[in-house]
Amino acid sequence: MTTDLNQLAVRLQDFASARDWERFHTPKNLVMALAGEIGELVAEFQWLTPEESTSLEPATFDRVRSELGDVTTYLVRLADLLGIDLVGAANAKLDESERRYDADLYRGSARKAPPLTS
């Protein structure tokens, strides 16, 4: 990635501020916008075969890239407003998954692990 998430968050803050949109960028509104954009991303893959989904036609690739940009924008803005470090959250989730899904027990399996016990 060429721009880190903190730089993107600052750019998004500036973008919203320049347009006086901060009042619209509530966590609720951003989550709803994020869900809509994820739906648009899903629609790009909905009727593709697994093979087609791994080698997108150029026009589809461009639309997917644009939708991923939208999803990222809303996700980064939401995390910034809530004070959540996205990379830290992703690493914490991966740490949890590593504990839940022992590589030797789950290699090649799509089965779900039982919840972790404290």
Rank of each mutant, 00 (worst) to 15 (best):
E22M: 06
P27T: 13
R63D: 14
S53I: 06
V31N: 04
E57Y: 05
R65Q: 07
L56D: 11
R63Q: 13
E57H: 09
F24W: 12
A35T: 11
E22Q: 07
E52N: 02
E57F: 01
L12V: 00
I38K: 02
T26Y: 05
R11P: 00
G36D: 15
A16S: 14
W21C: 07
V31K: 15
L56G: 06
L30N: 01
A18H: 02
N29K: 10
E37A: 00
Q46V: 14
A33Q: 14
L30K: 02
L12S: 06
L34E: 08
S17D: 05
L48M: 15
W47L: 04
R23F: 03
E37G: 04
T26F: 06
Q13G: 03
E40I: 05
P50M: 14
G36Y: 03
F45C: 11
L48S: 09
T26G: 12
G39R: 07
F15D: 11
L41R: 09
W21R: 08
F61Q: 05
D62C: 01
D14F: 00
A59Q: 04
E44M: 10
L30E: 15
I38A: 06
L48V: 09
M32S: 07
L12G: 02
D14H: 13
E40S: 05
S53L: 07
E52L: 03
F45A: 12
E22Y: 00
A18R: 11
D14G: 02
L34I: 09
L30H: 04
H25S: 11
S17C: 09
I38D: 04
W47Q: 08
A18E: 13
M32T: 09
D20G: 08
R19G: 07
F24G: 01
M32A: 15
A43L: 12
D20F: 04
A33M: 14
T49I: 00
Q13F: 04
I38F: 13
T60L: 10
R19M: 10
L41N: 03
E52K: 01
L34Q: 05
A18Y: 02
A33D: 13
P58H: 07
R65L: 14
F45R: 05
E57I: 01
A18N: 12
G36E: 13
F61C: 02
T60F: 00
V64D: 04
V64F: 03
H25N: 14
D14I: 09
S55Y: 02
E40K: 05
F15C: 07
G39M: 13
W21I: 01
W47E: 13
W47C: 03
